[in-house]
Design a protein around this nucleic acid. Structure first.
Length: 471
RNA sequence: GGCGCCAUCGUCUAGCCUGGUCCAGGACGCAGGGUUUUCAUCCCUGUAACACGGGUUCAAAUCCCGUUGGCGCUACCA
């Protein structure tokens, strides 16, 4: 039991699930599964003002969508009595004290320190009068941990990814651990939870490195053992700053809406921080679990490149068969409509062979609306190179005759006839282009013979006639 | 400002620990070409990087020191 690997993802429900938290969760999960340990999900909702149930559900849904499962689940808000017990203990032992400075006073002190270029810390005079004030809880204040401002000790810890990291204890000051007996602050609650849940490895984002010495001090005050630490590199926006709503950290839901496959997204995110030993890039989660190694996680931040995500998503789409791809499109259509026209799954399946290799995202199916609805287009589009309307009309007329005679079922036969028509007209494009535009209404689309096969003889003929009328 | 983390093509990275096989390899992107009625797919070619300066060494992307730069933290948020 003592040696069991236990890791935790501790998201705060103060916003929608986004790429950054998904990556942290994924690495925790990967490590736990690789080691045969436990993955614990803990919702850090002590900030009552900002935490929302709605966000929590989004987080849970997002993680599940990405394929993660968890072995244990907690909410900090359900554990308040536990924190109170420890806060009281620290207070009783004079390891912590009530600070009665107002926020204005603290803010003023901070400003002065900044101006004087002094150490930005709060060394509180109340810690020396603690016995006098101890019982006046009704007086407005905050609870701080006693930290030796004259210490010459360095607080050290070993980071699995970065090696030894150290901070000077005296620079910390008497930092806050709780607003009151009932309300713990992050650096305190996190330590208590990690201890109580017997977390063996704390794997989190690099932005938490600076919090670590404070948490170690709390551990020491309470006599807890230090867990192993691993700080993941940051995920960056294209401006190289931490990925946030402003530079593109859209919520997981947005990616779902855009038609990214969870497998592709998860695969891509994992590559932003970890490289397969053999260098492969398209890898299933199961394989990643097998070879995952925290020690090989990268140190420097990685820019989230949407273009490469698109490529990878396209690769995943290409690996799906007609039935599977159609099913995924139908699913997303019911939640976030991506196609204006009505269609049945059977019709969709027939379109898949043509659409698949042209799609990067599921929502790209919207470019194939002409399979389900007559296209609208300008008649000028029907014109191939510098040919006249008469020539185009004639070409269409001959194409219609071929379709009437050969039907659309046998692509080979239809294609052959079109080829010889091309020879007859002295220009293959003259045979193909108007036909293709008549069917799709677009200047770029699949081969008209392929479109005709899916549309069927009747609809194909209708569209060719309609085009001729336009000319 | 203080403290900390990081530093190879535009981007993701391999190589660095155990110096020579690296005038630095792969992927995305981009450019050009081939196939082709257009597009996509596919194939081929090209593009482009060891942040800088010192050292150590016969030899440095790799080891050491310094500089610069980027980012993070610096809350009665997490």
């Amino acid at each position: 039991m003592a040696n069991e690997i236990r890791v935790r993802m501790a998201p705060s429900p103060t916003g929608y699930a986004h790429i950054g938290s998904a990556r942290t969760a994924l690495f925790n999960w990967l490590f736990a599964r690789h080691e045969g340990g436990k993955f614990i999900l803990r919702i850090e909702d002590t900030d009552k003002e900002r935490s929302k149930k709605e966000y929590e559900e989004d987080l849970l849904e997002g993680f599940k969508w990405m394929g993660m499962d968890w072995d244990e689940f907690y909410r900090q808000s359900d554990r308040m009595p536990i924190y109170s017990k420890y806060i009281q203990k620290l207070l009783d032992e004079d390891r912590a004290f009530w600070c009665h400075h107002s926020e204005e006073e603290l803010e003023k002190e901070r400003q002065e320190q900044l101006e004087k270029k002094a150490i930005p810390r709060h060394v509180c005079e109340y810690k020396n009068q603690k016995s006098k004030i101890k019982n006046q809880n009704e007086e407005r204040g905050i609870i701080r941990l006693v930290v030796d401002e004259n210490s010459d000790r360095k607080i050290k810890f070993h980071d699995l990814i970065r090696g030894e990291i150290e901070f000077e204890e005296r620079l910390l000051g008497d930092f806050s651990i709780a607003k009151d007996i009932e309300t713990p602050l992050y650096n305190f609650a996190a330590v208590i939870d990690d201890y109580e849940m017997e977390i063996s490895h704390v794997i989190r984002g690099e932005e938490h490195i600076a919090n670590t010495p404070r948490q170690i001090l709390v551990q020491e005050a309470l006599g807890f053992e230090m867990p192993a630490y691993a700080h993941l590199p940051l995920l960056l926006g294209s401006d190289k700053s931490k990925l946030s709503k402003r530079n593109g950290a859209v919520s997981l839901n947005e990616y779902k809406k855009m038609g990214y496959l969870p497998e592709a997204l998860a695969n891509f995110i994992c590559l932003l921080g970890f490289t397969m030993p053999d260098g492969r890039e398209i890898v299933a989660m199961e394989e990643l679990i097998n070879v995952f190694d925290l020690l090989k996680v990268h140190k420097s931040g990685a820019v989230f490149d949407m273009k490469k995500l698109d490529w990878m998503n396209g690769e995943y789409i290409k690996r799906l068969n007609d039935e599977e791809l159609a099913e995924k499109i139908v699913q997303i259509q019911t939640q976030f409509p991506i196609l204006n026209s009505q269609f049945s799954k059977e019709e969709l399946i027939k379109v898949m062979p043509l659409a698949r290799e042209r799609m990067k995202k599921l929502s790209d199916i919207s470019e194939f609306g002409y399979f389900f609805k007559e296209p609208e287009y300008d008649r000028g589009l029907l014109v191939w190179k510098n040919k006249s309307f008469e020539e185009i009309k004639n070409s269409l007329f001959l194409v219609a005759e071929i379709v009437r005679e050969k039907g659309t079922e046998e692509k080979g036969a239809l294609g052959q006839e079109l080829d010889s028509l091309g020879v007859k007209l002295g220009d293959r494009g003259l045979a193909y282009w108007p036909f293709r535009v008549a069917l799709s209404g677009l200047k770029t689309s699949p081969d008209p013979v392929d479109i005709a096969e899916i549309l069927g003889k009747e609809k194909t003929l209708e569209r060719v006639k309609r085009a001729m009328k336009l000319l």
